[in-house]
Nucleic acid binder design. Structure first.
Length: 569
DNA sequence: GCCGTTTTCGGCCCGACTGTTTTCAGTCG
C-alpha cells in the first residue's frame, strides 16, 4: 500500500463524513491526516516498522490504529461502514461546482440520488427545484456542469498517475526475470492529464508478469487480456495497461508504446520512404537486415534525424525540425537553479522556513524565494506588514549562516478585485521577489479580469504573475481572460509569467507557454510548494516547458543568482 | 479526531460571495 493510497482512504472517509454532516471536526481530522500522509517522504509501511507513525503531526491514537489496519488488511472497517451508509456514487455529485456537502446530502436523502446519471434524470424531470434551497437555476447549473464533467474530466492528473505508477513499476520490477519496466504512452510524454497508465515491461515470461499485475491486491477488474498485454482497473478507478515484450524488442516496443500515434505514423511513413520497416519488434532495412537499436536515439539516427525526446512526440513539427537538425536543446530539471514561489508555515504551508531551505539546498539549488501569502488571504493566514518584516529578519539571519546559498525574501501578493495589490509599493520595493496572483473574485467578466491582471503586470515591483489563468485541473477552468492582451503587457513591462508546476495547476499550460514565449515573454517555472515534498513538483513544470519547446535560456530560474537579481525588477 | 494543557476537556482558520430568500444558509478559496 502506497502512501497516496492510504491517503485516499482517509480522504474518502472525510468526504463521506462531510456529506453525512454529523462530525465536522472528525471529518477535518481525517482530511488533515490525508493531506499529511500524501506529503510524507517515507513510506508509512517503513514508519510502521520503526513504530513512529504516532510522531506524525495530526495522527493520534485513532488514526494511527486505522493506518496500521490499512497496512495490515488493505482496508479499514470505518471506511467500509461509511460506504454502507453513503454509496460511493454520491461522492461524484459533490464534485459539481456549487454543490457542496449539504446539497449533496439533500439530493441523496430526499430524492435518493446516488450518481450523476440519476441526478441528470432528476434535474430533467424538474424534481431538483422542489428541494429546499434549490431553484430552476440550480437545476440548469447542475445539468450544465454534468455535461462539462462528462466531456472534460474522464482523465486523471499526471501527478496522481505518475506517483501511483511508480509504485506499480517497483512492484513489477521486483519480479524475477524482469529486466525493464517503464512508463509509456501519454504518461511518458508528460501530458497534463492521462486517460490510463501505460506501462511496458521486458521479460521472457510474459504470461507470469501479466498475472502478477492481474493479481495485484488493488486490481479490481480485468478489462482486457491478451497474450502480451493486460488491461486492468484498480480500486482507485485508474486503468492500467501493461504490455510485456522480450528484452530484445524492448526499445522498439517502448518507442511505439510511447507514441503519440501521429508521431509514430509519421515516422513509419518516413521509414517506408527509406525502405526501412519500423514496427514494435525491430527496424529492418530493404535487404532484410536488422538495424542495431540499442537506444531510442538509434531509431531516429537510422531515419537521419536527431533524437526527439518523448515530450515533443506529438507530430507538431518536431519531426521536420529533427530532420533539419534544428530541434532546440530543451530545458532540463538540472538547469534549474532555484525556486521562486514557495510557502512556509508563516502562512498556509506545512513546512517551516528552515525546512524548505534545507530541502532546496539538498536539491542543489543556489537560491530559494520564500513567497508566503499576503494579508487579505485570511484563509491562508496571509502575512501583514509586521509579520512580513519579522520573516525578512529570519531570512537575514539564515543568510548570514549560509555560504553558497541565498534565501530570497518575497511575497505572493494578492491581486485584489480592482487590480490593486494587497501590499503598498513601499513594502513590495523592499522584497527580492514579488509574485502577484489572483485568489478571489473569479467570476469577473473577461475585460475586468484582464485589466485587473494587466494592472499588476504594469506595477514596477511585480516580478512574476503566478498561476496566470487560475485553472485547477479537473476541478475548475481558468477565469475569463484575454491572454493575448496579458502576454503583450507582460512582454512590454518585463513581467515574468509563471508555469506553476503543481500537477493540480500546470498553469500556464503547454500551448499558452508557447504563445507567451513567442511574444517575447520571459517564463519562470515555480513549484508553489506548500510542503517540502512539493518542491519536487518542479519536474512537472519543466515538462510543460519542454513540451512548449523552451530552452534553458527561456526560463528565468535557470539563471545564476547574480544574473537573476539583475533581471528582477 | 487531534492537540495542548491553566491535564482531561474545550477549541479547532476566516470572510465574502451567491443564490435563494426576505434575513440567511451554503459554498468557496
Amino acid at each position: 500500500m502506497q502512501n497516496i493510497e492510504i491517503a485516499w482512504v482517509f480522504e474518502e472517509m472525510a468526504d463521506l463524513l462531510e456529506i453525512k454532516g454529523t462530525d465536522f471536526f472528525k471529518m477535518r481530522a481525517y482530511r488533515q491526516a490525508a493531506k499529511t500522509i500524501v506529503r510524507l517522504e517515507q513510506p508509512l509501511a517503513e514508519l510502521a516498522k520503526q513504530n513512529s507513525i504516532h510522531k506524525i503531526a495530526g495522527v493520534g491514537k485513532a488514526i494511527n490504529a486505522k493506518i496500521k489496519e490499512i497496512l495490515a488488511t488493505g482496508s479499514c472497517a470505518t471506511h467500509r461502514k461509511l460506504l454502507l451508509e453513503i454509496p460511493k456514487g454520491v461522492l461524484e455529485i459533490r464534485l459539481l461546482p456549487g454543490i457542496g456537502p449539504k446539497k449533496t446530502r439533500t439530493l441523496f436523502e430526499d430524492l435518493g440520488i446516488t450518481s450523476l446519471a440519476q441526478l441528470a434524470v432528476a434535474a430533467k424531470n424538474r424534481l431538483v427545484r422542489q428541494l429546499p434551497g434549490m431553484s430552476t437555476k440550480t437545476e440548469s447549473d447542475i445539468l450544465r456542469h454534468i455535461q462539462v464533467l462528462k466531456t472534460s474530466s474522464q482523465k486523471k492528473s499526471l501527478g496522481v498517475v505518475r506517483e501511483l505508477g511508480a509504485g506499480i513499476i517497483a512492484y513489477l520490477a521486483a519480479f524475477p526475470g524482469v529486466t525493464a519496466v517503464e512508463f509509456g504512452g501519454s504518461t511518458r510524454r508528460w501530458q497534463e492529464t492521462v486517460a490510463d497508465l501505460d506501462l511496458i515491461a521486458a521479460t521472457n515470461h510474459p504470461q507470469e508478469l501479466l498475472e502478477v499485475l492481474s493479481k495485484h491486491p488493488r486490481v479490481t477488474k480485468i478489462l482486457e487480456q491478451g497474450e502480451n498485454r493486460v488491461r486492468v482497473l484498480n480500486q482507485w478507478g485508474i486503468v492500467i495497461d501493461l504490455s510485456v515484450v522480450p528484452a530484445a524488442q524492448f526499445i522498439t516496443a517502448w518507442h511505439r508504446n510511447t507514441g503519440s500515434q501521429k508521431h509514430y505514423q509519421h515516422l513509419k511513413k518516413l521509414a517506408i520512404e527509406k525502405n526501412i520497416t519500423l514496427d514494435h519488434q525491430a527496424m529492418i532495412d530493404d535487404c532484410g537486415n536488422k538495424l542495431a537499436v540499442q537506444t531510442e536515439a538509434d531509431i531516429y539516427r537510422h531515419l537521419n534525424m536527431t533524437y526527439i525526446p518523448p515530450e515533443l512526440r506529438e507530430d507538431h513539427g518536431e519531426i521536420e525540425a529533427a530532420l533539419a537538425g534544428k530541434l532546440p536543446e530543451l530545458v532540463e530539471l538540472k538547469d534549474i537553479k532555484g525556486d521562486l514561489h514557495t510557502h512556509t508555515t508563516w502562512s498556509d504551508a506545512a513546512a517551516s522556513l528552515p525546512e524548505m531551505v534545507q530541502v532546496a539546498q539538498a536539491k542543489g539549488y543556489s537560491y530559494l524565494a520564500i513567497t508566503d501569502h499576503s494579508p487579505s488571504l485570511k484563509v491562508a493566514n496571509g502575512l501583514d506588514w509586521e509579520r512580513l518584516q519579522e520573516q525578512c529578519r529570519e531570512i537575514d539571519q539564515l543568510n548570514q549562516r549560509e555560504q553558497d546559498f541565498t534565501v530570497l525574501t518575497g511575497v505572493e501578493c494578492d491581486i485584489l478585485a480592482d487590480g490593486s495589490l494587497d501590499h503598498p509599493d513601499e513594502v513590495l520595493a523592499d522584497l527580492d521577489v514579488v509574485v502577484a496572483s489572483v485568489h478571489t473574485n473569479f467570476q469577473q467578466d473577461q475585460q475586468t479580469m484582464t485589466n485587473r491582471i494587466i494592472a499588476a503586470i504594469e506595477n514596477e515591483y511585480v516580478d512574476i504573475i503566478g498561476h496566470v489563468t487560475g485553472r485547477l485541473l479537473g476541478r475548475r477552468s481558468g477565469y475569463a481572460l484575454d491572454l493575448a492582451e496579458v502576454f503583450a503587457a507582460a512582454a512590454k513591462y518585463d513581467t515574468v509569467l509563471e508555469i506553476n508546476a503543481s500537477p493540480h495547476r500546470l498553469d500556464l499550460n503547454t500551448e499558452n507557454t508557447k504563445k507567451a514565449r513567442e511574444l517575447g515573454v520571459q517564463i519562470v517555472i515555480n513549484s508553489d510548494a506548500h510542503d517540502a515534498k512539493g518542491l519536487n513538483d518542479l519536474e512537472y513544470g519543466v515538462a510543460v516547458a519542454r513540451r512548449a519547446w523552451l530552452t534553458s535560456g527561456d526560463v528565468l530560474n535557470t539563471m545564476a543568482l547574480d544574473d537573476l537579481l539583475k533581471s528582477l525588477k
